[in-house]
């Protein structure tokens, strides 16, 4: 049986994935290789942060301690964030950024599809709205993965490097710990383990079309779900939280 605290923690994981990846992608604003892609990435970042807002609001209401979306997003310590390590992986270069986006979008598209059936109606509503957005993120990112993997010698080499670096993080998306199990049993959140086969098929399809090797999905690096992060996370939070630390309670 899932308690209110379980639901709060489950929503927080989901919200943190979107906030942290949204923050990462937004780092490209003004720096992308061309204007068209600058806007495309900024649009994706805004979609992710928009989903995070809705999820934090719902999490805050579920928790019932009066914490709003800003407090949840900005005023927690590193160990209290429960995002996937993949989401905090540094942008590195455009190949890493776009492959990371493809992986997350592929997973999240399956996740939202399953979440349409959630017994928590507010979550099903967020899933319906986010599904249209993530479908475009998936299309855009997959298109680039194919284009770069099957492109020039240099772009192929960069995609190979990105694939090798990101592969160890993929297994974490499908880990089903006790909390995920309780939430899946109560049909509140989708069972992440059940999404792996469809994700693997989508990934194999796109990587093959991109002339890239398809390595097994590994779970070598994980820990984000229990608050154990990579070194990159502290730097990301320093920037993300700066304004709220400098001007507590500040609003736009």
């Amino acid at each position: 049986m899932a308690s209110a605290e379980d639901i709060f923690c489950g929503l927080l994981r989901l919200a943190d994935d979107h906030l942290i990846l949204g923050q990462r992608v937004s780092e490209w604003s003004g720096h992308a290789p061309q204007l068209e892609e600058d806007l495309a990435l900024s649009n994706i970042a805004l979609d992710l942060i928009g989903s995070a807002r809705a999820l934090y609001q719902l999490a805050g209401e579920t928790e019932g301690k009066g914490r709003d979306e800003d407090q949840l997003a900005f005023l927690r310590d590193e160990r209290a964030y429960h995002n996937l390590l993949l989401a905090e992986y540094p942008n590195t270069d455009f190949a890493h950024t776009i492959l990371r986006q493809f992986y997350f979008s592929s997973f999240q598209q399956l996740y939202w599809q399953a979440a349409l059936e959630s017994t928590l109606p507010e979550l099903a509503a967020i899933a319906a709205k986010s599904l249209k957005e993530v479908a475009y993120h998936h299309r855009h990112a997959a298109d680039w993965v194919i284009r770069l993997g099957d492109g020039t010698e240099l772009s192929h080499q960069r995609m190979l490097a990105a694939e090798a670096n990101l592969a160890p993080y993929l297994g974490e998306m499908f880990e089903k710990d006790a909390l995920a199990g309780r939430l899946a049993d109560a049909a509140i959140l989708p069972d992440p383990a059940e999404l792996q086969a469809a994700f693997a098929a989508d990934r194999a399809n796109i990587l093959t079309r991109a002339s890239l090797p398809v390595a097994d999905i590994e779970s070598r690096l994980s820990g984000g779900r229990s608050g154990r992060h990579t070194e990159a996370m502290g730097h990301l939070l320093a920037e993300l939280q700066y304004m709220q630390h400098r001007f507590p309670g500040q609003q736009w």
Binding site: Q34, L39, R147
Partner: peptide, 20 residues
């Protein structure tokens, strides 16, 4: 106008730049 390598990418770029 947008810069793009081919028609498909041009359509996505147009969406991202002009349909925001």
């Amino acid at each position: 106008s947008v810069h793009a390598a081919d028609a498909e990418q041009a359509l996505q770029a147009a969406r991202d730049v002009y349909a925001r």
